[in-house]
Amino acid sequence: MVRARLTSVVCAYGALALGACLAAPLIGSTHISLARAFDRSVPFADNVDAQIFFVARMPRVLTGAIVGSTLAAAGVVMQALLGNPLATPFTLGVSTGAALGAVLAITFGSSLAVGVLASVPLASLAGAVVASAIVYALATRPGRPISTMVLLLAGVTLNAFFSALILFVQYAADFTQAYRTIRWLMGDLDVGSFAPIVASLPMVLLSLGIFAFLPRPLNLLSVGADTAATRGVDVGRTQRLAFLSASLATAAAVSLAGPIGFVGIVVPHLVRLMVGVDHRVVLPASALFGAAFLVGCDLVARTVLAPVEVPVGVVTAMVGGPFFLWLLVRKS
C-alpha cells in the first residue's frame, strides 16, 4: 500500500524531473540544432551548437537540477527537524554563513591573491561550514536531544549577526565588488563548466544518502520528540543526522549557485498538497520536483527577456511569494 504509492509517486515525479532536464537544454535564447550539436564530424571547437549545448546549457540545467533537488529536500528535512512547516534550508544560518564567505572572497579575494581564498564557491562553502558548526555547537549537548527552540534561536541570531558582518564588509567594498555581491545573493546557475558540479557531487550524494535513512524517523519526530522516543526513534541521533545532512546539502547548493530562495519552502509545500505529508513520499518527491522546478524557473530566467537574463532567484521569488500568500489565504 505504502510501497505502491511510493512507487507511483517516484515514477511520476521522476518522469517530470527527467523531462525537464531533457527539454530545458533544447530551449534557449538562441535556436540550436541537436543534429549539429551531436555531429562528431565537426571539431568541437568549431561546433557552436555543440558548445552552446554542452558548455552553456547542459551544466546549467544539471546545476539547476542538483541545486533544486538538494534545496527542496533540505527544506523538507529542516521543516521536520524544527517541527515547523515555515522553516527553510536557510533558517539555521547556513546560507548567511555562505554569503559572508562569498562576500569576503569577492571583496578581499583579489588582494589576497591566493587562488583558493579568492574562489567564491570555496569561500562560501567554508562560510556555510563555519555557520553550521557554530549553530550545532550552541544547540547540542552530549547525550541529550537537541532543543529545537535553542536550534532555532541560535540559527536566527547567527543569521542576523552574519548579515551585519556582510553589511560591514559591503561597506568596505568598492562599488563593483558591492554590485557583484548583490548579484551573487540573487543566485546564478550559469556555472559555465562541469567542474563545479563534479566538485559538489560528493557532498550532494553524501547528504542525499543520509536523507534516505531519515523519512520514517522524521515522521515521528514531527509528531513530537518525546513521542518519537517512545516509538523507538533515537531522537538525538536523528536530529544530529538531519541537521548535518540538511546543512551539508544546503552548503553544497549555495556554494554552487548562491542562495536561491523559496525553492526549499515552496516545493515541499506544493508536494505536500499533492501527495500528503508522509516523509517517505514527500522527501523523494520534493527532491525530484525541486529539480524540475528550478530547471523550469531558470528556463524562464534565461529566455523571458532574452538576450538579457533575469536572475533565477528573482524568478523563484516571483513564483514563490504569491504562492505563499495564496497558501496563507487558503488556510485561514
Binding site: Q79, A80, G83, N84, P85, N219, L220, S222, V223, G224, D226, T227, A229, T230, R231, G232, V233, D234, V235, R272, G276, V277, D278
Partner: peptide, 29 residues
C-alpha cells in the same frame, strides 16, 4: 530505544503533529 519501544508504549497528554497526517498514518507510526 527500539527494544524499549517494543515493550513499553506511551500516550502523552496531548499530541500536536507539525504536519497534517491521516489517522491511519498516525496509527501506523
Amino acid at each position: 530505544r527500539r527494544e524499549l519501544a517494543r515493550h513499553i508504549a506511551v500516550v502523552p497528554q496531548e499530541t500536536h503533529p507539525a504536519f497534517d497526517y491521516s489517522v491511519m498514518e498516525m496509527v501506523l507510526m
